[in-house]
C-alpha cells in the first residue's frame, strides 16, 4: 500500500533512501525509505525494537550512515546549518537536575542563532508556574514538557520527537498532544501508540523489523486495525465472505478462519448460518501488534 505519491510542489525537508543499519550482527533498519514533507506531521509507527529510534538518530546525524543516504534540508544531517534549523526531543532520562527549568531553557536557547524568548517557551510548554523549580524535582510529565520546550528553543523549522509521550499518564499525554497541534512546524514523531496517530498525524509510516511496511494517511493505516477480529474453526472459506458488509479482510491462519470486520455481530450470525459445525469462536479487538503482522504478511 505504498500509495502516497510525492507531489512535485511539496518540498521534501528530510529523506532516508535505502538506509540499512546494523548494530553488530543485529539488523535495525533494512533498506528503509522515508520522506518528510514540509508542513506535515509524519508519524513513524511501529512496535518496540522496530527501528524507529535508529531512523530518528540517523536523521539527526547521531549515528554514522552505514548504507544508503540521509539528507536533511538537502545537507548532511549533522551539519551545523542543519542543527540550527531543527529541534529534537529524544528518549533521554534527564538534563541537569540541579538547574531550574528556566536555567536549562536559557542554556539551550543560547545554542541557537535566533532562539525563541525564554518566556515564550515557558508559556508554550505550560511551564510558567514551574520555571524556578529544579528539573530534578519535576514529575515525569513535567520533565517531558521541559524537553519539549528545549526542542523548540531554536524556533525550528523541523522538529523530531522520539516517543514523546511514552511513560506519560493520559492527562499529560493529551496536554502534550494539544501543544504539538498548535505548532506550525514540520514534525517527525515516532510512536508505538495508535491513538497518537489519530490525534496528530498527517502522514504515517509503519516500520516493522526495520522495514517500511505501510506508508499512507492515518485513515489508510487505521483500516488495518479497525473493527473486531473474529476467529473460529469452520469449513467456510475466506473468499466466501470477503464481500460481506463490514469485512475488511479474511484469511486462514492454521486451523482458524480470521476475519477482520466492522460489523462483528452480523458476521457471526452469517458464519453460524453457513456452518452448523463451527467451533472455537472468539471475537476480540484488533491490536496494533496483530495489525502489524497482517501488514507484514501482505507486503511482498
Amino acid at each position: 500500500m505504498k500509495n502516497q505519491v510525492a507531489k512535485p510542489d511539496e518540498s521534501v525537508l528530510a529523506r532516508l533512501s535505502g538506509v540499512t543499519h546494523h548494530y553488530g550482527s543485529i539488523l535495525a533498519l533494512d533498506e528503509l525509505d522515508l520522506e518528510v514533507r514540509q508542513g506535515e506531521v509524519l508519524e513513524v509507527l511501529g512496535p518496540n525494537g522496530a527501528g524507529k529510534t535508529t531512523a530518528i538518530n540517523l536523521l539527526l546525524g547521531n549515528l554514522p550512515v552505514q548504507q544508503g543516504s540521509v539528507s536533511v534540508f538537502g545537507q548532511e544531517p549533522g551539519a551545523m546549518q542543519v542543527r540550527e534549523r531543527r529541534g529534537a526531543m529524544l528518549q533521554v532520562s534527564g538534563i541537569s537536575g540541579n538547574l531550574t527549568v528556566r536555567e536549562n531553557i536559557e542554556l539551550f536557547s543560547s545554542y541557537y542563532p535566533a532562539p525563541l524568548a525564554v518566556a515564550k517557551l515557558l508559556s508554550t510548554a505550560g511551564l510558567e508556574e514551574l520555571s524556578e523549580r529544579r528539573f530534578g524535582k519535576l514529575s515525569g510529565g513535567q520533565k517531558q514538557r521541559v524537553m519539549f520546550a528545549l526542542a523548540l528553543a531554536g524556533d525550528p523549522e523541523l522538529l523530531f520527537l522520539d516517543e514523546p509521550t511514552t511513560g506519560l499518564d493520559v492527562d499529560a499525554r493529551h496536554r502534550l498532544w494539544d501543544e504539538i497541534r498548535t505548532l506550525e512546524v514540520t514534525v517527525v514523531l515516532s510512536t508505538h501508540n495508535l491513538a497518537e496517530v489519530d490525534a496528530l498525524a498527517d502522514h504515517v509510516i509503519v516500520i516493522h523489523h526495520g522495514q517500511s511496511i505501510a506508508d499512507g494517511t492515518p485513515a489508510e493505516i487505521k483500516l488495518h486495525v479497525a473493527g473486531r477480529l473474529v476467529r473460529c474453526v469452520t469449513s467456510t472459506l475466506p473468499d466466501e465472505i470477503t464481500q460481506l458488509p463490514g469485512v475488511i479482510q479474511a484469511k486462514v491462519r492454521g486451523r482458524h478462519l480470521e476475519v477482520q470486520t466492522t460489523l462483528p455481530e452480523d458476521l457471526v450470525r452469517d458464519l453460524l448460518a453457513r456452518d452448523e459445525d463451527l467451533v472455537d469462536l472468539t471475537v476480540e479487538a484488533v491490536d496494533l501488534e496483530s495489525a502489524f503482522l497482517s501488514l507484514t504478511k501482505e507486503s511482498p
Binding site: L60, R83, L90, V92, S93, G94, I95, Y111, Y112, G154
Partner: peptide, 14 residues
C-alpha cells in the same frame, strides 16, 4: 552520557 543529555546537546548547534 548515560542520561543522554550529552547526546541531546550534540543534536543542538552547541
Amino acid at each position: 552520557r548515560d542520561t543522554g543529555v550529552l547526546l541531546l546537546k550534540q543534536t543542538t548547534p552547541m
